[in-house]
Amino acid sequence: MKFLSFVLSVLFVIQINDAHKLNIELLYESLCPDSVRFVKNQLAPTFDEIADYVNITFVPFGKAFSNQNGDFDCQHGPIECKGNRIQSCVLNQIPDQVKQVQYVHCFMQTYVTNPMEQGEKCATQAGAIWEVVKQCVESKAGMLLQLQAEQTTSHYKPQFIPTIVYDKKFDQNAQDSSIAGFRDYVCKRLQKDKQDVCAPMRLKPIRA
């Protein structure tokens, strides 16, 4: 009985802590140069240090749209559509957000230079099963994940990709600040919520 009470109390604390996290949604595209730069220069170098204080959701869709043929048209062509779909399928397999960030960073760096590889190495390094990923990409499951990404993206009607949304509300000032200095903006938001987590932060070099 005491053990059950302990487990319930731990779960309760976890739920409270999770409720106080800053929710971030990243709307982006697999071949968008601005998306690649943001992930490489802003998100990836910072995330390990803020991971305990945020929940991040990746939405790989951008300015794409579904068509009457049951397929998608993307800003940077069919190869980008394939990349968005691959990412949706991989991200759906790996719930750990630190691994998700590592995967997206890896994929965005490799897919733009070698789309034929399809990011298989990045996916398997993150713990995804590549055969399952392929089945997802080539099936209705991949389409449904992209339709879900389209629904989320359409809700915010982004004018610029990538778009960064905090706590389900788009704010242009937050967007501009995040593009210029993601770490600084997130630190200010966390400090506003009385989470003094930024003072000891030091950026770590990220390999391309």
Rank of each mutant, 00 (worst) to 15 (best):
33 P>S: 10
12 F>D: 03
6 F>Q: 11
113 T>I: 11
202 R>K: 15
77 G>A: 08
56 I>S: 03
102 Q>N: 15
20 H>A: 12
165 V>L: 06
145 L>E: 07
39 V>Y: 01
137 V>Y: 09
72 F>D: 07
183 R>S: 14
159 Q>W: 03
125 Q>T: 09
126 A>D: 04
148 Q>G: 08
31 L>W: 04
2 K>H: 13
165 V>T: 04
96 D>R: 05
169 K>V: 15
44 A>P: 02
20 H>M: 13
53 Y>M: 05
193 D>H: 10
3 F>N: 10
172 Q>I: 13
168 K>A: 14
109 Q>E: 13
180 A>I: 07
162 P>S: 06
106 C>G: 06
26 L>I: 15
207 R>A: 11
87 Q>N: 10
56 I>E: 02
46 T>C: 12
1 M>K: 13
194 K>V: 05
61 F>Y: 15
18 D>I: 04
18 D>F: 02
99 K>Y: 04
97 Q>H: 14
45 P>F: 07
85 R>C: 13
67 N>G: 06
109 Q>G: 00
144 L>C: 00
204 K>F: 04
105 H>Y: 02
200 P>Q: 10
208 A>Y: 09
68 Q>S: 14
111 Y>M: 05
50 I>F: 06
165 V>G: 02
128 A>H: 07
120 E>L: 12
7 V>N: 03
190 L>S: 04
113 T>P: 00
34 D>W: 07
35 S>F: 03
137 V>H: 04
109 Q>C: 00
170 F>C: 00
206 I>K: 13
102 Q>P: 00
114 N>M: 11
192 K>I: 00
100 Q>E: 11
150 E>K: 10
67 N>Q: 06
161 I>A: 05
186 V>E: 08
204 K>C: 00
192 K>Q: 15
129 I>L: 13
126 A>I: 03
81 C>S: 08
174 A>C: 02
195 Q>E: 10
65 F>D: 09
58 F>H: 00
38 F>E: 08
35 S>R: 07
104 V>S: 05
82 K>M: 15
93 Q>D: 09
138 E>V: 01
81 C>V: 07
132 V>F: 04
33 P>E: 06
42 Q>V: 01
108 M>T: 08
84 N>M: 07
173 N>V: 09
86 I>C: 06
159 Q>V: 09
